[in-house]
Design a protein around this nucleic acid. Structure first.
Lengths: 242, 242
DNA sequence: AGTCATCATGTTGTCTGACAACTGGCTTCT
DNA sequence: AGAAGCCAGTTGTCAGACAACATGATGACT
């Protein structure tokens, strides 16, 4: 029951702790890029855990692209660590997951996505976007939660860019955002009386975005998307720099 | 030497194969979100591998946020799979890593980054950007490879946004891009005679971006950044939709 | 002496078996 | 009926062993 004991055995999974410590060492360049790590045996005795735990931690590091192993040779830090995956919450050190900064990134991509959608949309794309739009209208009329329809609308636009990376990044950011966004809608629901009015405004902005995309007007699509997102930030109570 | 043999044992590591198959099943929603996976034992006998291999594959899936395990209960698919990390090369199925689409994404973020940098840059930020600029000039004058200075210039702008997510995403995209970009510079070196002229043009665009950021003119910064990136795409021989 | 095959050693990859920690449902006792 | 405790099942961890592979040293042959 010594207090120092808890510092080692507190986190549920040993492999998580090993992962975190190794990640920290790599981030601090205590293990320099391209350098070789200690052997699994050495790490195991060093951390006082079994080799299986070390291997699991290394597997996570490999998955994130911080380490690569060569059978018979050893484990090495990647020249450009972290080159395989992008995470909002960097391993261990959480930068607060602030809504404003994430939303700014989302807006940057979404504005451009609207522009590309205007250029490249097919008839099928337009149909999908329209479907999201009408679903939103129906939800609004029924007084239901329109967030799902909102998702579909934006996802359809992302798909219309025909750029898989833009589409997948927006999916990723929305996934990270959905929890807080649900919460925000609830806040609006409870706190703000003119919730319905806000939604009607959002819907009007959606329609203007859609019109620009239908017209194939890239600049207008970007402008409308930007306006929609800026206003959405205001509606969600997120600070916005213009 | 039978051909069927290769289909099973071609990927070096068994855990990679298991990871890929499981990932495929999850992507195809054969294992639905929120659903429970078979036990490690069952997976082991099903894949005809040891439980250690299965555990390593599951560790990768956990690291990417597709699966979460509850000790004593089992392993479950996340409600929103893939919510923890964004990768350009989706697990196994490589979407060709096409330069155009990645560059489009990079441009979207970098244009917005220039805008935020114009709004938020401190004196230290301006000094860092200027340092990258002068380094580029020196490299250009010395006839050296200016790609490193170019990196520093763009990274300094990304840092000036004071938005860690935008900065880190640009770092990530540049890391993915650096290999192909180095190649592209070489192509320019060999194929195009007016390589020096192209670099001078790029440098002029950089200076205009910098001037807009110094002036704190968000719209001008965005405009110059967009123009720079569009022209960079042309210089690199990447198709560009305007 | 120089070159090449061979081997010894060390490292990662995989297998096997076992036990600890924990969960959830079931039984059993009051 | 309600609550306590037990029990099978599952993940987490440990230990030891062997296979696959890489690398440098050793030795044989030209």
């Amino acid at each position: 029951m010594t207090p120092t004991l808890s510092s080692v055995r507190r986190l549920r999974h040993l492999s998580d702790q090993v992962f975190q410590v190794l990640m920290e060492h790599i981030s601090a360049k205590r293990f320099p890029p391209g350098g070789q790590l200690p052997t699994e045996q050495q790490l195991a005795v060093s951390f006082d855990v079994s080799r299986a735990v070390v291997r699991e931690a290394l597997a996570c590091l490999k998955a994130d692209g911080f380490v690569e192993t060569r059978q018979g040779s050893g484990a090495f830090v990647t020249q450009k660590p972290g080159g395989k995956s992008f995470k909002l919450i960097e391993g261990g050190s959480a930068p607060a997951l602030d809504r404003q900064h994430i939303f700014e990134l989302r807006a940057a991509v979404e504005v451009e996505a609207a522009g590309f959608a205007a250029l490249r949309r097919t008839e099928a794309d337009l149909a999908a976007i329209r479907a999201g739009l009408t679903a939103m209208t129906d939800a609004l009329r029924a007084g239901a939660d329109g967030s799902e329809a909102d998702d579909r609308f934006h996802q359809a636009i992302a798909a219309a860019t025909h750029n898989p990376h833009i589409r997948r990044l927006l999916e990723f950011l929305n996934r990270q955002f959905s929890d807080t966004r649900r919460l925000s809608w609830m806040e609006i629901e409870t706190a703000g009386e003119p919730a319905a009015a806000k939604r009607r405004n959002a819907q009007r902005e959606h329609e203007r975005m859609f019109a620009a995309i239908v017209a194939g007007d890239k600049r207008a699509a970007r402008r409308e998307a930007r306006q929609h997102l800026v206003r959405a930030m205001r509606r969600l109570g997120i600070g916005v720099d213009r």
